[in-house]
Structure formats: C-alpha cells, structure tokens
C-alpha cells in the first residue's frame, strides 16, 4: 500500500512540475537554480546554488529537466535570467535545497517501501529488525517532505502571492497592524505547542495500549461501566 502510494507520488509530482513549468516558469527555474535561458535544463541530484555567481555546484543529470518538461533532452528551459530581477525569488538556494530534500525523501520512501515489499514477498519482512527500526522513524518523513515542499513552493513563487498578478507586498491588509500579527503568531505557536505535547502524550498511551482484543470490544456494557467508575473514583 505504502509502496503504491510512494510510486504514485512520482507521477503526481511529475505532473505538478509540468504545471509549474507551464504556469510559473520562474519557480521551476529556482527549483533547479537554472539561470541561463539558452541552456538546456539539468536535473540536480544534490548541490548548492552560489547566488552571487549565479551558478550551481553539484551532481546533475544533464538535460534531464528539459526531458522531463518537454520530452526532449536538447530543448532549453527558460532560466531565471529571462525574468526581471524584481520578479524573481531572492533566496534561490533555499528554494533549491528544500525542493531537493523533498524529492530525496520521496525517493527514499519509494526505495524503503519497495525493499519492504521484497522482504514481504520472501516472507522475511518481520525478521528485518533494522528495517522495522527505520520505519518507526520514517513515519516523520512524509510530513517533512510535505513541509519542505510547501516552503519551496511558497518561497519559489515570491515576490508574487498570485503569480504574475498580485505582489505579496500589495496583498497585505492595510488595517491589520504588525502588533496584531505578532499577537496571533505567538498565540498560535503556544496553542500548537500545547497541542503537540498533548498529542504525543495521548499517542504514546494509545501505542502502548496496543490494538483492542476482540473479547474486550464485544463486551460493551462491562466496558462502559468500567469507564464510568474510573471517572468517578476520587483520586
């Protein structure tokens, strides 16, 4: 199931990237740190964008970005130079890194789940303790990929809030003060911190409790009585 979902992500991600190539070319260019408009687009596995020299250092598959976008290794991709400096995201390296981390996590999940499928097929999945350990931690990976992708998507669209139509600086409310924004930001940080602690506490309890026994769930009256009693007992 997870393997299926992970592989499906590959296709959904690919079609999203094509949408972005068509509608938000600056963002696509920023994802790959692609500056030169006449050059073919390379697909980086990992790397670092030197924003001063407008170059990327890293390992890439030449022409792969062009291929994924246009099914043609030789077709150039509009680079960041195509657009006026005022219409480009400033922190290209940040967009590049968050985007590549997201893709890397996606690939890792595909690898992990396929590996698990292989062991399952061989009937040895639950003997692979090391893999089970990784999966315990891997619960966090999709969430991280989600957040990272969100960062690269939002920052990559800057300075626009609606691409090509509305600048972020023009989209601010004129009557909401900075103080009010601070108020809400701090308030929600506190609320979510509290929620997180509660979540961990209750989730931990639920995990330790384990799945319900069949006998126990069938015995409804007994169960509800126990609940009511435990609630009334003075501590």
């Amino acid at each position: 199931m997870a393997a299926l979902a992970a592989v499906a992500q590959l296709f959904s991600g690919h079609s999203s990237a094509r949408m972005i190539a068509a509608y938000q070319p600056t963002k696509l260019a920023a994802f790959e740190g692609h500056y030169d408009s006449l050059a073919i687009g390379d697909l980086y596995l990992f790397g670092y964008v030197d924003q001063q020299k407008e170059q990327v250092h890293g390992v890439s598959i030449p022409g792969m970005l062009s291929f994924l976008t246009h099914d043609d290794f030789k077709k150039p991709i509009p680079g960041l130079h195509t657009f006026p400096k005022a219409d480009r995201p400033k922190t290209v390296n940040f967009v590049f890194q968050t985007y590549h981390l997201m893709v890397a996590i996606g690939m890792a999940l595909i690898g992990l789940t396929l590996l698990a499928l292989f062991f399952w097929w061989r009937g040895k999945l639950f003997e692979q303790r090391w893999l089970m350990r990784i999966f315990t931690v891997a619960v966090l990976l999709p969430q991280m990929a989600n957040q990272l992708g969100w960062y690269s998507s939002e920052v990559g669209r800057q300075p626009w809030v609606v691409y090509g139509m509305l600048r972020t600086s023009d989209a601010l409310s004129r009557s909401v003060t900075a103080g009010q924004v601070w108020f809400s930001l701090i308030l929600f940080t506190l609320v979510y911190a509290l929620l997180f602690v509660l979540f961990l506490y209750l989730l931990n309890k639920k995990i330790k409790h384990g799945p319900e026994d069949l006998e126990e769930t069938e015995d409804i009256p007994e169960y509800s009585k126990r609940y009511a009693e435990s609630g009334n007992s003075p501590n």
Partner: peptide
Amino acid sequence: SAFYVPFM
C-alpha cells in the same frame, strides 16, 4: 481585517 483579534 477589522475583527482580526476577535477572530483569532
């Protein structure tokens, strides 16, 4: 915008 704080 006007009721920002109450809405929060």
